[in-house]
Each structure stands twice: as C-alpha cells, then as structure tokens.
Amino acid sequence: MTGFGVQVRDLTVRYGPTTALDQVSFEIRPGVITGLLGRNGSGKTTFLSVAAAFRRGTSGAVLVDGEDPWENARVMGGTCLVRESGDVVADEPITENLRFLAERRPTFDRATAESLLDRLEIDPSKRPDKLSRGQRSAFGVVVGVATRAPLTLLDEVHLGMDAPARYAFYDALLADWMAHPRTIVVSSHLIDEVERLLEDVVILDHGRVLAADDAATLREQGLTVTGPADEVDAFVTSRRVVARQTLGRTAQATVIGTAPDDEARARAAGLELGAVGLQDLFVHLTDHAGDRAAAPLTPQESR
C-alpha cells in the first residue's frame, strides 16, 4: 500500500457570506505524512471535510487517488477522517466499536488497536461517551492508526490528550506508518511536537495557501541575521523581512529566502546567521500586523 494522493485545484468553499477556502491549490503526495498547519479558522477542517466527502466545495476540484471523492464508494472506503473523538459509536463499549470497525474497514487491524488501547491506558469495556476528554481523544488516535486507511486524515486529534499520551501517539503513528506506508495528513497547531513526523507541509491562513512544500525545503527558507543594526539593514535590503528586533546598536532580522553567497557576505560584514525552525517560520508567516494579510511564499522564496 502506498496510499492515496490528493490534488486540490482552485478549491473554494463558502458558508453563506463566509469564505472558508479561497481558490486554494496544492498536492498531497501519496505515501507520505503531510502536516496541515494553520491557526484557528484557517480552513484546515473545511479542507479535510471536502477530501473525506463530508461536504462539497463551492467551486474548484479535489481529486483523491485521481477521482472525485463525493459519493465515490471506492475512495470513501479508503479514506478515514478522525476528529477529536474519533469515528465511533459513543454509546457502545469500545470492544463493540472495534468489532464494528473490523467488519467495515478491510484494512483495520484489531491487534494494533488493542495494543494501543493498552499503551494509552484505555479500558476497552468502557463506552466512549463515558471516557474523559483526553481518553476520548486517545481512542480517536487508536481508530486513526489501526484503521490503516490509504488516506488517513487526523484533524487535531491530540486535543485533550496530555503530553505523555501525545508522544505515545506520535511514536505509534510513525512506527505503524513505517511498517504499513500510506498517506497521512496531520492537522495540528503543536508544530514543535509533530515536526519530526512530517515529510511535507501545507500552511493555510484565512483560507489561503501560504506555503506548500517538503518540510526540509521550508526549513531552509528562514534566516536570522544578527549584528550591527546598519549592517543588518544593508544585508536584508530587497529581502522579505518578517520580524525585526533591536537592542541598542545590535539588531536581529528574520528574513524569508536565502542566497548562495549569504555566509560569505555575513562574515565580511561581521554578521551572524541562524536557522529558523518550522514553528517560528509558521508564526512569522501567519503574523498579521493590524489588518495586513499574511503573504504566501513566492516561488523564489520557497526554493
């Protein structure tokens, strides 16, 4: 199994006067773990709902494994969307939920589910609606991992889980994906925690795509420049500055985009260059100064 790929072309989704997604285009490669990152209200859940055929777009197209997922039995049968509490029958014991999933999901692995239940300390005799919020979230994680769907969509499933449970989830997800490769999309705002899982990243902001690339490439796009303020200003001329701090005569600027001669120029000017982590890059890209909309990465900046 290599998983389903997803192609998104000029997708727009409106709810009355609200535009949740505004002509977004990107691709999710089959067989990789993609991070869908964005602040609240960015359009993450709306996109996942369209990809899982829970709703239709207003215009544009989404193709899952080359086909429109809407009322498509083959594609829908290979897609699993898990939200915080999972795709479960709340008033039936967990053991009955596992039986139900095993009957209806051909890729569901009950042994994996039971192992994860034990690891996350969830009593299988309990009903989901009798679990704490954290345990309900953890059961959603069990469903998402054990279903092993060709397209697994995890929408903020970590909500309510404490740190040990979240890290157990990340470890289990990565191990199971390595043993059974498929396409996994992880929607999250806990970027520092999930970064190690991600091969590709899509960043949404207010219904638009700010960046869509492999994680390694995106990590290379941010650069901090520190040193005498006048030298920093000269170095960043004609670059996109997303943050700047000054302390006396020393300044630090965070810029998007790098050049082959950056290190040589920095040494000559007495400047220090530093890397920008994925979470810091996300924060800077989605930072709105007043009413200024965040600007997407240009092709030159994202390469």
Rank of each mutant, 00 (worst) to 15 (best):
L197N: 07
K126M: 13
V62C: 02
D162T: 09
R208V: 10
P124S: 06
P164W: 07
L81T: 11
W177G: 08
L153W: 06
D192K: 14
L273V: 11
T45Y: 00
L151C: 00
A234G: 02
H288G: 03
V232G: 04
D109N: 10
A216Y: 13
F108C: 01
S25T: 14
L204I: 01
L120C: 04
E231Q: 15
R29D: 09
H284G: 11
F47E: 04
P150K: 03
F282K: 01
N97F: 06
P93T: 02
G160F: 11
V242I: 07
P260D: 06
K126F: 06
S137Q: 07
E272W: 13
Q279G: 09
E103Q: 14
A293L: 13
D65K: 00
T217P: 02
Y167C: 06
T95A: 14
G140V: 08
G248D: 10
T34K: 01
S59R: 14
L154I: 10
R104K: 09
R182L: 00
D205P: 07
S187M: 02
A234M: 01
A266M: 04
K130A: 15
T58G: 07
T12C: 02
H284K: 07
T147L: 00
I256K: 00
V236A: 00
R292V: 14
R105Q: 13
G43M: 03
R136G: 12
W70T: 15
S49K: 15
V225I: 12
G78K: 01
R249P: 07
V232E: 03
V225R: 05
P181F: 01
A289N: 14
V13C: 08
E71M: 13
Q135P: 13
G38N: 02
G5Y: 02
T217V: 09
V24E: 09
R249V: 11
R244M: 09
G222M: 01
R74D: 08
H206V: 09
L218H: 05
L154S: 08
T18Q: 11
A234S: 12
T34G: 06
P299R: 00
A73N: 09
V157C: 03
E193P: 11
L198E: 01
V276R: 05
R133V: 15
H189I: 11
P124G: 01
T147E: 08
G78W: 05
G78L: 08
E263N: 08
R99F: 09
L204S: 03
V276G: 08
S132P: 11
R303H: 14
E103S: 14
L153R: 03
R127P: 12
A53I: 12
T152W: 05
Q221I: 15
D171H: 13
R196V: 13
T12N: 02
R239V: 00
S238F: 12
G227L: 08
D171P: 11
E156P: 12
G144W: 06
D291W: 07
Q7G: 13
D176E: 15
F169D: 04
A51Q: 04
D230G: 08
L285N: 10
V236F: 02
A52C: 06
E301V: 09
T254Q: 10
D65V: 01
V143L: 02
E220I: 02
A216E: 14
D287R: 15
M178R: 15
V194A: 04
V8P: 10
L131R: 03
G38S: 03
D230L: 11
